[in-house]
Amino acid sequence: MSKNDSISMSVIRRLPRYYRFLTELDEQGVDRISSNKLAEIMNVTASQVRQDLNCFGGFGQQGYGYSVGQLKDEIKGILGLNNGYKAILIGVGNFGSALANHLSFEKLGFELVACFDNDKRKVGQTVGEMVIRHDDELEDYCSGNQVDTAILCIPKENVEAILDKLYSLGIRSFWNFSHYDISTRYSDTVVENVHLSDRLMTLCYRMNHN
């Protein structure tokens, strides 16, 4: 087991927040920050900040704190945001179109290279700067182009068939908005599930108990 394998997901899920806040501080011209101030921004304890960052080497200096620019770049490297992973999007409905048009993939470590849909009325139209392709073109496209991950914006009942095809084409990484449990079907995949309804219900709970 490598050192990174032993790092908890709770720490890993805080890294994007560190990166986002540090980017904002860097853009504001802030040169350095203490663990106490960073903890205040992150809404955690200073001890938690030090523990989190020590998982990856520490980066701080006694009596100085953290160099904002250096720490931002270190976390950017840890997250792999310079890798430019190639992503395809499956399902160009309202939500898929919104992602393709408005999400800054390049800043988040990915390049969106193609979009697919099974609705022939959408094929040939453009989303962002890409022409929408039919799902039938998936095999030809993936055979001739590098594809590292697939973004699934399709109904749960439509996932299984398209998932089997993507898996057979060698794709093992998914950003999944479909509510289909990919990892139970293919245990060797890397999946980030997004359940917007769960988040909204959590908000409802917090409002109800505030």
Rank of each mutant, 00 (worst) to 15 (best):
I33A: 14
E40A: 13
N83P: 00
G80H: 08
I88P: 04
G96V: 10
G57I: 15
Q62W: 04
N36F: 04
I78Y: 08
G80D: 14
H102P: 01
I41S: 05
R20P: 00
I41T: 13
G63F: 00
H134R: 06
E74I: 01
G91D: 05
F105M: 04
Y85P: 01
A114N: 05
A39N: 04
Y18E: 01
I78C: 06
K86P: 11
Y19Q: 07
N36R: 02
Q62E: 15
G124A: 07
V44D: 06
E129M: 06
L15P: 04
E40Y: 09
G63R: 01
K72N: 03
D117R: 05
A100P: 01
S67F: 07
Q70D: 04
S6N: 12
E106V: 08
K120I: 15
Y18L: 05
S8F: 02
F110G: 01
S47P: 00
V123E: 14
E74K: 12
P16T: 12
Y18T: 04
Q48C: 03
G93A: 12
D135H: 05
D135M: 08
F105T: 00
S34W: 01
K107V: 00
I90A: 13
R121W: 03
T126Q: 15
L89N: 12
Y85N: 13
F110T: 00
V11Q: 06
D73G: 00
T45P: 02
I41Y: 09
F59E: 10
S35E: 13
N83G: 00
R32D: 05
G128I: 07
L22C: 11
K120M: 10
R50T: 08
N118T: 10
C115Y: 01
T23V: 03
D52Q: 12
F56Q: 08
N118K: 14
A87D: 03
G69C: 02
G128N: 11
K107M: 03
G128Y: 03
S8M: 04
Y85G: 11
K76W: 13
Y19T: 00
V11C: 11
I132H: 13
A39H: 05
G60Q: 14
Q48D: 03
L71C: 05
P16N: 10
D31T: 07
S10H: 08
R50W: 03
I33P: 10
F110Y: 15
G29D: 10
M9N: 15
M9A: 13
L79I: 07
K86T: 04
Q62C: 01
G84H: 06
S104H: 12
M42T: 02
D5Q: 11
G124Y: 11
F59T: 12
S67M: 03
V49L: 14
L71Y: 10
S67A: 07
I78N: 07
D73Y: 09
A46F: 02
Q61Y: 09
S34A: 09
I75F: 07
S34R: 02
G58M: 11
L22I: 11
G84Y: 02
K76Q: 10
F116W: 03
Q48V: 07
V92H: 02
I7H: 14
E27T: 03
D5F: 13
T126H: 15
G60N: 15
K122V: 14
S97Y: 05
N36H: 02
F95T: 06
R13M: 14
G93P: 09
G96E: 10
E129Y: 08
N82T: 06
R121H: 09
L38T: 08
I12M: 12
E111F: 07
C115H: 02
N94M: 06
I12H: 03
